[in-house]
């Protein structure tokens, strides 16, 4: 039976029928049913494993939880109390500032280095494609691998970075264990991880610029730098906007690198909203699930605002 109707659906779809007749309407309806039947698993999945955890998280942030009530699930409703606690916490200001600095500085360097490398690799030379592929390695490695490697490289006593600095006469720096440097250290590691993504996306953007434009610019006597600033950079603006906004969304939520390298310390000096949220909920023997979830929800709001800007720009470019 089912097979019968699908045949008719298909036939109706290929033969132009006047809209409004009963068979056409029925055909369109069966077609919709088939379309949603294929979507049903993903819709159910999204509801169960995206919407529900997010709802639980929202619920956590609006109740007063203790370890006991977390297990039993009878925590009293406390409205915006957790949010007030979070905003009033002395850790809030620094965590927000670190998040902004971490994200901003990472983005600027990742983008600048990625763009420079993309322009470099866009020239044709031997091994160009192979080397460009090798540049992807940092981006593909598990974050725990990158983070632990950087931890050891930045080790105060036995790290290669301090040894190299010693050669040029710079005193050893306590990269991970001093409050002045811990944020810098995790930013360096994060830039290293993010450059490949910027390189690949910007490179594909460069490839999309037609060669004739460069030829025309060359005929007008434009060379090197001025071609880059007057031709390449403006034409690359749409791709740049997308790259930066995607980078923004993904850098806001960086957690692994910071947690593995410094655990947000020492004394909160590299704590961002993401690591703070984790520390509140899981970092100690007395978990504060409510405030932890509240911080998490603030982070979601920030990510979504950036995300919506991204989607808007992408949509405008597509049309």
């Amino acid at each position: 039976m089912a097979h019968d109707t699908t045949i008719r659906t298909g036939a109706a779809a290929t033969v132009p029928v006047r809209a409004g007749t009963a068979p056409a309407r029925r055909a369109r309806r069966t077609r919709q049913v088939a379309a949603w039947a294929f979507l049903a698993p993903v819709v159910a999945y999204l509801l169960a494993f995206y919407a529900y955890p997010l709802y639980r998280n929202l619920d956590l942030s609006l109740r007063h939880y203790t370890v006991r009530s977390f297990v039993q699930g009878d925590a009293p409703f406390s409205g915006a109390d957790n949010y007030r606690t979070v905003f009033g916490d002395p850790s809030f200001g620094p965590a927000l500032l670190h998040t902004v600095v971490f994200t901003g500085v990472s983005l600027v360097f990742q983008f600048a280095l990625g763009l420079a490398l993309a322009v470099f690799f866009a020239q044709s030379f031997r091994l160009s494609a192979t080397l460009r592929a090798l540049f992807l390695v940092p981006w593909l490695l598990p974050l725990i691998v990158s983070a632990s490697t950087w931890s050891w490289m930045l080790n105060s006593d036995s790290g290669i970075v301090n040894a190299a600095l010693g050669v040029v006469g710079v005193d050893p720096v306590n990269w991970l264990t001093s409050p002045q440097w811990s944020l810098v250290s995790v930013i360096i590691a994060n830039i290293w991880i993010g450059v490949p993504f910027n390189l690949v996306v910007l490179y594909s953007g460069l490839q999309a610029i037609p060669g004739e434009i460069y030829e025309a610019a060359a005929l007008d006597g434009s060379t090197g730098w001025s071609t880059f600033w007057r031709v390449t950079f403006p034409l690359l603006r749409p791709v740049s906007a997308i790259t930066l906004l995607l980078g923004l969304v993904y850098t806001l939520k960086v957690f692994d690198i910071i947690w593995i390298m410094t655990r947000g310390g020492p004394t909160d000096s590299s704590t961002t909203l993401a690591t703070w949220s984790y520390r509140l909920s899981f970092g100690s023997l007395l978990p504060e699930f409510g405030p932890g979830a509240a911080v998490g929800n603030l982070l979601i709001v920030m990510a979504l605002v950036c995300g919506l800007v991204y989607i808007r720009i992408q949509h405008r470019q597509a049309t």
Partner: peptide
């Protein structure tokens, strides 16, 4: 962010 999904 994955960390928020993880909490839920």
């Amino acid at each position: 962010p994955g960390i928020i999904m993880a909490m839920g």
